[in-house]
């Protein structure tokens, strides 16, 4: 961990050390004991950010598919279900939705006689997953619609039912076009997970906020925070590029 942060912090330090005493890079200087403690404190939010993002992304991928399928139906009623969900969810800003889920949903549950508490962890995950699913649903829809109609017709004429047609014919072809944009969406989730700090989730942004309160060095601490997100996003984009290369080299169109 120390090694990964060293080049980044050194970079900022070099930028700061030549000028006046206005700079306070010492708060995140890993070579000093207190600096190292601070860096460790900040980085300790990494696990929560990654967990929230990963679980939310997986849920979003599942919900997105479930929402996308009625959007591909020939029946208008089903398509309407899809449109209403996508337009409605897409229109809600993340922060209000987060408040609604975290503060509002337990009340809804209680009114139904259920005692389901929502902690910051699951509150953040539900919000991120649902909010993102409107976008993943559109990605699925576009990907599936890009597969020629003749494919599902051919599947039907050899007796496959709807599920089998999707499972064995359409999705295996669509997935190559769906995965790269889906992975991109993951980057979005990671960044949006910063909002979880507002409801008290101990993730990267929350840690930075807390340290700013005690150290009162917002510039230095938020700078490090930005680099923490940069690091995460760089890792994901490297993964996306690897995926795209793999998919691309495996592409066999008709």
């Amino acid at each position: 961990m120390k090694r990964a942060f060293l080049p980044l912090t050194v970079l900022v330090l070099v930028a700061g050390c030549s000028s006046s005493q206005n700079w306070g890079w010492y708060v995140i200087d890993p070579t000093t004991e207190s600096g190292w403690t601070n860096v460790k404190f900040l980085a300790s939010g990494m696990g929560a950010t990654i967990q929230i993002s990963l679980i939310a992304a997986v849920l979003s991928i599942v919900i997105g598919l479930i929402v996308a399928l009625p959007g591909l139906s020939e029946k208008r009623g089903w398509r309407l279900v899809n449109r209403v969900y996508v337009e409605f969810i897409r229109s809600i800003p993340l922060l209000p939705m987060l408040f609604w889920v975290f503060y509002g949903m337990p009340i809804v549950f209680r009114s139904m006689g259920l005692n389901i508490p929502i902690d910051p962890f699951w509150g953040a995950i539900i919000t991120l997953a649902v909010s993102d699913s409107a976008f993943t649903a559109e990605i699925y829809r576009a990907g599936i619609q890009s597969i020629a109609r003749g494919q599902s017709e051919a599947a039907q004429t050899i007796g496959l039912n709807y599920y089998q047609t999707m499972r064995y014919v359409i999705l295996p072809q669509a997935i190559r076009r769906i995965l790269p944009p889906l992975a991109n969406q993951f980057i979005y989730i990671v960044k949006m997970s910063a909002f979880a700090s507002v409801i008290g989730m101990q993730e990267l942004t929350r840690r930075a906020n807390e340290l700013v309160v005690t150290e009162y060095r917002p510039l230095e601490i938020y700078t490090l925070l930005i680099f923490e997100y940069l690091l995460l996003v760089l890792i994901i984009s490297a993964g996306v590029r690897w995926l795209e290369r793999r998919m691309g080299s495996d592409e066999r169109g008709q």
Partner: peptide, 16 residues
């Protein structure tokens, strides 16, 4: 579907 087979103009083979 079990009694009637179909051959298309564009073949519609499954490319994957």
């Amino acid at each position: 579907r079990s009694e009637v087979g179909m051959v298309f103009q564009q073949f519609n083979l499954f490319p994957h």
